[in-house]
Amino acid sequence: DTFTFTLDGIEVRLHGASEELIKTIEELLKRDIRWEELEKWIREWEK
Protein backbone atom coordinates (compact mmCIF):
# COMPACT_ATOMS: atom_id res chain seq x y z
CA ASP A 1 0.00 0.00 0.00
CA THR A 2 1.04 3.59 -0.62
CA PHE A 3 0.13 6.42 1.73
CA THR A 4 0.12 9.80 -0.03
CA PHE A 5 -0.16 13.21 1.62
CA THR A 6 0.88 16.80 0.92
CA LEU A 7 2.99 18.80 3.34
CA ASP A 8 4.33 22.31 2.69
CA GLY A 9 3.27 21.91 -0.95
CA ILE A 10 5.28 18.69 -1.37
CA GLU A 11 3.50 15.48 -2.32
CA VAL A 12 4.87 12.63 -0.22
CA ARG A 13 4.34 8.94 -0.94
CA LEU A 14 5.24 6.32 1.62
CA HIS A 15 5.37 2.82 0.17
CA GLY A 16 4.72 -0.07 2.52
CA ALA A 17 3.90 2.15 5.49
CA SER A 18 2.37 0.32 8.42
CA GLU A 19 -1.13 1.19 9.59
CA GLU A 20 0.38 2.47 12.84
CA LEU A 21 2.77 4.79 11.00
CA ILE A 22 -0.03 6.11 8.77
CA LYS A 23 -2.26 6.86 11.77
CA THR A 24 0.59 8.63 13.55
CA ILE A 25 1.41 10.79 10.51
CA GLU A 26 -2.28 11.66 10.10
CA GLU A 27 -2.33 12.85 13.73
CA LEU A 28 0.82 14.93 13.20
CA LEU A 29 -0.68 16.51 10.06
CA LYS A 30 -3.76 17.55 12.06
CA ARG A 31 -1.41 19.53 14.32
CA ASP A 32 -0.16 21.54 11.33
CA ILE A 33 3.33 20.07 11.64
CA ARG A 34 6.14 21.49 9.50
CA TRP A 35 8.11 19.36 7.02
CA GLU A 36 11.32 19.54 9.09
CA GLU A 37 9.49 18.22 12.15
CA LEU A 38 7.92 15.33 10.26
CA GLU A 39 11.21 14.43 8.59
CA LYS A 40 12.93 14.29 12.00
CA TRP A 41 10.09 12.20 13.39
CA ILE A 42 10.26 9.71 10.49
CA ARG A 43 14.03 9.31 10.95
CA GLU A 44 13.45 8.44 14.61
CA TRP A 45 10.69 6.00 13.62
CA GLU A 46 13.04 4.16 11.24
CA LYS A 47 15.57 3.38 14.01
Rank of each mutant, 00 (worst) to 15 (best):
R13N: 15
L14H: 00
E39K: 12
E46S: 10
V12C: 08
G9M: 03
K40W: 09
E20N: 09
L29N: 01
I42W: 06
E46N: 14
V12P: 00
T2K: 04
E46I: 15
I22A: 03
T2E: 10
W35T: 03
W35A: 04
T2G: 07
D32W: 07
I22V: 10
R43D: 04
E44L: 09
I10L: 06
G16Q: 06
E20W: 14
H15L: 11
L21Y: 05
G9R: 01
R34H: 10
I33Y: 05
E26K: 15
E37Y: 07
E20K: 10
T2I: 11
L7F: 13
I33S: 04
W41V: 12
I25H: 00
K40E: 08
W41R: 07
E26D: 07
R34K: 13
T6N: 08
A17I: 11
E11L: 06
G16L: 07
D32C: 09
R34C: 04
E36K: 10
L28G: 05
G16S: 06
E20Q: 11
E26C: 06
L29V: 07
E27G: 10
E26Q: 14
A17C: 10
K40V: 11
T6C: 14
D8F: 08
D32P: 08
E19V: 15
H15D: 12
T4Y: 09
K30D: 07
D8A: 04
D32K: 07
I25R: 00
I33E: 02
T4N: 05
E11W: 04
L29W: 02
W45H: 07
K47Y: 13
E44R: 05
S18Y: 03
E46C: 13
D1R: 14
V12H: 12
L7Q: 02
R31C: 06
I42K: 01
T6Y: 13
E11G: 01
F3R: 01
E19S: 12
E39I: 15
E11I: 09
D32S: 11
K23D: 06
S18F: 03
R31A: 12
D1F: 15
K23W: 09
W35P: 03
G16P: 10
K23C: 05
E20S: 09
L7V: 15
K30C: 05
E37K: 05
R34Q: 07
E11Y: 05
L14K: 00
G16Y: 08
E39V: 13
W41M: 11
I33T: 06
R31N: 13
E19I: 14
E46L: 15
D8K: 01
F5Y: 02
R31L: 11
K47E: 11
K47M: 13
K23S: 10
W45M: 06
I33F: 06
L21K: 03
L21F: 11
D8R: 01
L38M: 14
I10G: 01
E27T: 13
R31K: 13
W41Y: 14
E11S: 05
E37Q: 12
W41N: 04
I25D: 00
I33V: 11
R34D: 06
T24M: 14
E11M: 05
I25T: 01
F3N: 00
L29E: 00
T4E: 06
E46D: 12
V12A: 02
G16C: 08
D32G: 13
R31D: 07
D32N: 12
W41S: 04
T24A: 15
T24L: 15
L14F: 06
R13H: 15
D1W: 08
E46H: 14
W45F: 10
E37G: 04
E19P: 15
T6H: 07
I10V: 14
K40H: 09
R43G: 07
E27L: 13
D8S: 03
K40L: 12
R13W: 12
F5L: 04
W45R: 03
E36F: 12
E19F: 14
D32Q: 10
L7E: 01
L7N: 01
E36M: 09
H15F: 15
K23F: 10
E36H: 13
T2D: 13
V12E: 01
D32H: 10
K30F: 08
W41T: 08
T4C: 07
T4R: 04
L14M: 10
S18M: 02
G16D: 09
I22R: 08
H15V: 13
E37T: 09
W45Q: 08
T4F: 07
V12N: 00
G9F: 04
E37C: 05
I25P: 00
I33H: 03
I22C: 04
D8V: 02
T24H: 12
E26R: 13
E37D: 11
D1P: 09
I25Y: 01
T2N: 07
I22Y: 03
V12Q: 01
E46F: 15
S18N: 10
R43F: 08
D1A: 12
T24Q: 14
E36L: 11
L38T: 00
T4Q: 06
A17S: 04
I25N: 00
V12Y: 15
S18E: 04
R13P: 02
K47C: 11
G16N: 14
I33G: 04
E46Y: 15
E11P: 02
T4P: 01
E44Q: 11
L38H: 00
E37H: 07
T24E: 14
K23R: 14
F3P: 01
F3L: 03
W41Q: 06
E19N: 12
E39P: 05
R34F: 06
W41E: 05
W35F: 14
W35Y: 13
E26Y: 12
E36Y: 12
V12G: 01
K23P: 01
A17N: 02
E37F: 10
L7G: 01
E20C: 08
E27A: 12
W45V: 05
I25M: 03
L28S: 04
I25G: 00
D32T: 08
G9Y: 04
A17W: 07
E36N: 10
K47A: 13
E36W: 13
E46A: 13
L38S: 00
T2S: 07
G16A: 07
R13I: 15
R43K: 09
F5M: 02
L14I: 15
R13T: 15
L28M: 14
H15T: 14
T4H: 07
I22F: 03
E27R: 11
S18K: 04
E37R: 04
F5A: 01
E46V: 14
I25E: 00
R43A: 08
L29R: 03
R31P: 02
E36A: 13
T24N: 15
I10T: 05
L7C: 08
I42F: 08
I33P: 09
E26F: 12
K40A: 12
A17Q: 02
A17G: 04
D8H: 04
R34V: 08
E36D: 13
I22W: 03
R13A: 13
L7H: 08
I33K: 03
L29F: 04
